[in-house]
Design a protein around this nucleic acid. Structure first.
Lengths: 151, 151
DNA sequence: TCCGGGTATTTCAGTGCGCAACTATTGCGT
DNA sequence: ACGCAATAGTTGCGCACTGAAATACCCGGA
């Protein structure tokens, strides 16, 4: 009845599971050490930094990070306390709030970014051939499409 | 100074990061729903089930899961409360403790396993070609080696 | 015998997250 | 215009997981 995994599949799944968890742990530690910031915060700052006017609505942030609204609220609270983000009423729809990356936030991000890139290089990118980078990109995008479609 | 990521590298890293996080979330939800068990518990049960006499020392469990001792202690406490694991003194070294998978634990695992495999198939294995499975296996093992070596 | 180092537990505190309840605002149907 | 459901976001509470530190115990060598 159950379609068990073949040896190849088993081997891949186990290695992938462990590796991705360990990698996440490692990057998190590096980020914490280098920038005093957990990855979830970092991701929000990156999103904001790439948005027009360094500004996004709460609901947009929730959407792109696959988060519940309360998570964003909590996170933005902390980022606001750190002085990296400020809130502003949403013109046109006063129910909504905008999260805006402050200059201090941008500066913090620019300090953290090189360290983070270095970490990603050391523990991921530099370990793989260009061929493998492409393979992993294709695979990841396939997974990503499935996971977001069937959310 | 900083070696920034190329477009290919950037694309791969972002897709991989998001995909592996989403995948972990999804598998966790499925496992929780289907077996009432978080993935960390499941991994411990799997380790025990594959060990001689379904038995391992705490320090071994900590080693293979890359965990601090206290984490294992906490986890085994819960598993013991659930009746899935029992403790026993370590013969020959009374400092140590053995964690032993009970029959109930084995049964719980055998109930959970098919559901979990189905989940892994749906969200990972069945989405990739045999070629890609091999590629991902090679890539993951490369990462895994690095991450465990440089721990 | 004594002591340094190893093994495991427990307590305590911090973190991150979601649920549920709540406020405020908007849009829709009449 | 009015009332009411739906939407946006916040807040408080509790849960689960984790690690640091303190503790207790045991090993083996000098």
């Amino acid at each position: 009845m159950t379609r068990w995994l073949t040896d190849d599949e088993q081997r891949t799944w186990r290695a992938f599971g462990r590796a991705s968890r360990l990698l996440a742990d490692r990057l998190e530690r590096d980020l914490q050490a280098g920038a005093g910031m957990p990855p979830t915060y970092y991701e929000l700052l990156v999103l904001l930094s790439e948005a027009p006017d360094r500004t996004m609505r709460m609901s947009e942030l929730a959407h792109w990070t696959h988060s519940k609204p309360s998570r964003i609220s909590h996170a933005i609270n902390k980022l606001e306390q750190a002085g990296w983000v400020r809130r502003e009423h949403c013109a046109g729809d006063r129910r909504g709030w905008l999260a805006i990356l402050t200059d201090e936030g941008k500066a913090a991000l620019e300090t953290a970014a090189p360290l983070h890139v270095e970490s990603v290089r050391t523990h991921l990118v530099d370990l793989l051939s260009p061929e493998q980078i492409r393979q992993l990109g294709d695979i990841s995008e396939t997974l990503l499409k499935h996971l977001t479609d069937t959310r």
